[in-house]
């Protein structure tokens, strides 16, 4: 078991190093020039800027400096566009925001997905099933920002009608302000998990142990909760790690719409503005985060499901 975890860790570190290298060279190969602003600067000022950011050195030297700074000193450097902020500070300040929003969203999606999935399986091919599955198709195929923009409009109507702020249109800070963006962020995942849960439940229904449970004369409720549900949840757990990572990293559209100071926004802005240090910092950080999440889920899965032997 320990050697398994160790091997996983080594492979994770190698992947992160490879990822950092890939991002570094892809970024420098990308067209455009990070130092250009809408007002042009003279060759001399440009030379000063190049020196300031160390871009006057050969690429391979820059690469060496970057790798040693990041992996030995854990320092990503200073942002190009926010000229007084260290990338480490940007990640430290804004990742927790994305993480809180992501966690809230994933909790809602999981609880909702299990609930609706179980409901549809219970009422298979009857009205509740049909209605929920219709909504699920909407949830999967319509991008979440469409829902969000539509929702914001109706919040203004609702608030005007009620005379107080029932649901804030945008902003970040209070729990009150977190609910709406979290709901819109999780729509797609919720729909996906509902479908997953439904098919998993239907698969479980036909298994021998459910038949045994029925033969033993257990009450249908007992069968539903302690036999069917518990076994059907397993596939959901596998997807959770990746889903959480995807939700935390992919929330930039929602973050933009709701004025949320999350890291996703910085990542996307950095790519648009070719902010080299922020691209590298957030890219490597997100990559590492994703890889670690996947590894953790792999390990946890081994514990949760005794049928799977991790030492395979």
């Amino acid at each position: 078991m320990l050697s398994f975890i160790f091997r996983r860790m080594v492979s994770a570190v190698v992947t992160i190093l490879a990822l950092a290298t890939l991002i570094f060279f892809a970024m420098h190969a990308a067209p455009g020039d990070p130092l250009l602003e809408s007002k042009a600067s003279s060759p001399e000022i440009r030379a000063n800027l190049l020196k300031h950011y160390g871009l006057d050195k050969p690429l391979i030297v820059q690469y060496g400096l970057f790798m040693s700074n990041v992996f030995l000193k854990w320092d990503f450097g200073i942002s190009y566009s926010q000229k007084n902020r260290r990338v480490n500070d940007i990640i430290r300040d804004h990742f927790p925001v994305s993480a809180i929003l992501g966690l809230l969203a994933i909790v809602m999606a999981t609880v909702g997905g299990i609930l609706f999935g179980a409901l549809t399986a219970l009422f298979r091919n009857r009205l509740p099933d049909r209605v929920i599955m219709m909504l699920v198709i909407f949830g999967i195929s319509v991008p979440n920002f469409v829902f969000a923009a539509w929702g914001q409009y109706w919040f203004t109507v609702l608030n005007a009608w009620a005379g107080w702020t029932v649901i804030p249109v945008a902003g970040w800070g209070t729990f009150h302000e977190m609910i709406a963006p979290a709901v819109f962020l999780e729509v797609g995942t919720l729909a996906y998990l509902t479908r997953l849960m439904r098919s998993s439940m239907l698969e479980v229904v036909t298994t021998d142990y459910i038949r045994t449970a029925k033969a033993k004369g257990l009450s249908p409720l007992r069968i539903f909760f302690s036999h069917q549900l518990r076994n059907a949840i397993l596939p959901i757990i596998t997807t959770l790690g990746v889903a959480l990572a995807a939700i935390t990293t992919g929330g930039f559209v929602i973050e933009n719409l709701f004025a949320i100071p999350g890291l996703g926004r910085y990542f996307v802005q950095a790519v648009q503005q070719l902010d080299y240090t922020v691209i590298m910092g957030t890219g490597v950080f997100y990559g590492a985060y994703l890889i670690i999440m996947v590894q953790i889920v792999d390990v946890i899965y081994g514990f949760v499901d005794p049928r799977i032997r991790v030492s395979k």
Binding site: T156, N159, V169, N256, A259
Partner: peptide, 19 residues
Amino acid sequence: IPYFIIDAKARYNLYKDKK
């Protein structure tokens, strides 16, 4: 300045909501 918000429509909704 409680909001840094780039989306024009979201900003308009904030105004409409008297924020």
